[in-house]
Structure formats: structure tokens, C-alpha cells
């Protein structure tokens, strides 16, 4: 499985350089915001995890699956490799963004937003990223990466659309206390969703005909 991960990192290395540029660019951009940390970190985590999607695209382009499954690698290892890749990219993106926004925060501190709050927000956005990918990855294994692009848009658009339409329909949004409680549960929800998602993807991929 480490061989597969290495393959993904080699094929993504070009894209990774672009990501580093974006990191710096958005750091400057977010420096002008009220709270630079949460937007920047959320954005970076999603962008980093998107690289996992690109790795599916690269595999697809090279028709790697057919060759990959002629190697001594089980299908479960292929699936686990992609989940691990998403997780590693999420962590890399999160940590880098955290470090950069910490630097910004020391120069331009935000009231009531110390290290503790900063860490909470990092964990929160990471959990959201992992949760979203838990939905997306089985769809990619089932329908392929090209068709999944539509799902990707849907997954990111759905929460926004829900919030807007709730407001218009006059449905009251949950209060701040409820939201905060939900936020505390978020890491747990993300972990459970991720594990379940892996099991589903594994099942899909193991019965797939290449």
C-alpha cells in the first residue's frame, strides 16, 4: 500500500507546488479579513483534500487501475491507500495553514481568539473536510471520478442552499447553543463517517470489474 501512496505523491508533486503558491496567496488575502484563521484553514483543507480527487483523475487518465490490479496489491489496499492519502493531505493542508495563520495572528491578533480557539477552529474545519470526503469517496469508487464532479459540487452547495432556503421558508435556524454542541460532536461524527465510508468504498471496489 505504501507503494501506491508513493505513486500518488509522485504524480501529485507538480500540483503540490501550485498548492504552495496558493497557500501564500491566500494567506495574504485572508490577512485582510476579520478573522484570517478559519476561512484560510477551511479553504486550505478543502483544497488539499481536492488533491486526492486529482489523484483519482490521474489514475483514470493513465488507466492505472488495470495495471495496478495486476500487481501484488489487494483491492482493499487500493481503497485504504486513497483514504490514507485524503487524511494525510487534510493534515498537511491543515498544519501548514495553521502555522501560517498563527504567524498572521501574532502580527494582527483577533479579540477572543487565542491559541485554544484557534485549535478548536482547526479541528472543526478538518472534521468538516473529512466528513465531506466520507460522502464523496464512495461515490468516486462507484461512479468514477469524472461523474463524481457533479456530486462534488452538490455536496458543497447543499449545506449553503439548505441554510438559504431555511431562511426563506421561515424555518428558524438552530440556535447558537445547539450549533456549538453540534460542533463539539463534529470530530466524532467525522471519524465514524470516515470509517463507515471506507467500509462502503471497500465493498464497492472489491466487487468492481475493471
Amino acid at each position: 500500500m505504501t507503494g501506491l501512496l508513493l505513486k500518488d505523491f509522485y504524480s501529485l508533486r507538480q500540483y503540490g507546488k501550485t498548492m504552495l503558491f496558493m497557500l501564500v496567496f491566500f494567506a495574504f488575502l485572508s490577512a485582510g479579513m476579520d478573522n484570517p484563521a478559519s476561512f484560510f484553514e477551511g479553504f486550505m483543507i478543502i483544497m488539499s483534500m481536492m488533491m486526492a480527487i486529482y489523484s483519482f483523475s490521474y489514475d483514470n487518465l493513465a488507466k492505472w487501475d488495470r495495471f495496478g490490479l495486476s500487481l501484488p496489491v489487494t483491492r482493499t489496499e487500493v481503497v485504504a491507500g486513497k483514504y490514507l492519502l485524503s487524511l494525510i493531505l487534510c493534515m498537511l493542508g491543515g498544519i501548514l495553514a495553521f502555522l501560517l495563520s498563527s504567524v498572521i495572528l501574532t502580527f494582527r491578533p483577533v479579540e477572543d481568539f487565542g491559541l485554544k480557539e484557534h485549535l478548536y477552529s482547526l479541528v472543526g474545519v478538518s472534521a468538516i473536510g473529512i466528513f465531506l470526503f466520507s460522502i464523496l469517496l464512495p461515490l468516486i469508487f462507484k461512479f468514477g471520478v469524472e461523474k463524481s464532479r457533479l456530486f462534488l459540487i452538490a455536496i458543497f452547495a447543499a449545506p449553503t442552499a439548505a441554510v438559504i432556503s431555511f431562511g426563506q421558508l421561515g424555518i428558524e435556524l438552530p440556535s447558537g447553543v445547539v450549533l456549538l454542541g453540534l460542533l463539539k460532536l463534529l470530530p466524532l461524527i467525522a471519524v465514524v463517517a470516515f470509517l463507515l465510508s471506507f467500509l462502503v468504498s471497500n465493498r464497492i471496489y472489491c466487487s468492481k470489474e475493471i
Partner: peptide, 16 residues
């Protein structure tokens, strides 16, 4: 079926 941007030396490391 190798990725376009991979080099033979990478292949050796992957296959190892």
C-alpha cells in the same frame, strides 16, 4: 499505464 509525469527512477522506488 504509467502516469505521464512519473519518471523511471520513481517507478523503481514505487515497485520496491
Amino acid at each position: 499505464y504509467f502516469h505521464d509525469n512519473i519518471k523511471p527512477k520513481h517507478i523503481s522506488k514505487i515497485m520496491a
